[in-house]
Amino acid sequence: MARLSGASVARIEEICDAYQGEKTPLVMILSDIQREFGYVPLEVQEVVSRKTGLSVAEIYGVVTFYSFFSLTPKGKHVIGCCLGTACYVKGAQRIIDRFCNDLGIEPGGTTDDGMFTIDALRCIGACAAAPAVTIDGKVYARVDISQVPGIISAYRQMEGGAE
């Protein structure tokens, strides 16, 4: 098992300590960790268990219950396809299918190169822009299926250019 660095352990402990005044703050602690580390693997859960006194089984149960938490790292770019009703009735399923097809992964999955993760989202509040897609938080409105390959290659190029 990959060991956590001392700095990571210290940081996780710091996050736990920040909630000391709160009753039952597990979900908040995990949310902070997820946001900061990008995932919540077993080693991290063990640290949280030591700090909070909750069993790892319980923490693992919480981590796997909420879709916000992930046990494995997410890709560099997270493509969120809205599958809310308003988007769905405007063909959002085909958009996510096409993203999945082109990247060769399932919703929730991450490409082997760690570049992209595809998430299915529920209404992001941009129903007027249905079907809506967010990439790293930026909202793409009224996405047409033929734009998909272009969007992907734009992000790939961005990465290529940076290297």
């Binding site: 809310g84 769905y88 529920r122 209404c123």
Partner: peptide, 9 residues
Amino acid sequence: GDPGAFMDR
């Protein structure tokens, strides 16, 4: 949670 609604938001 309603997947097509954002009133409360």
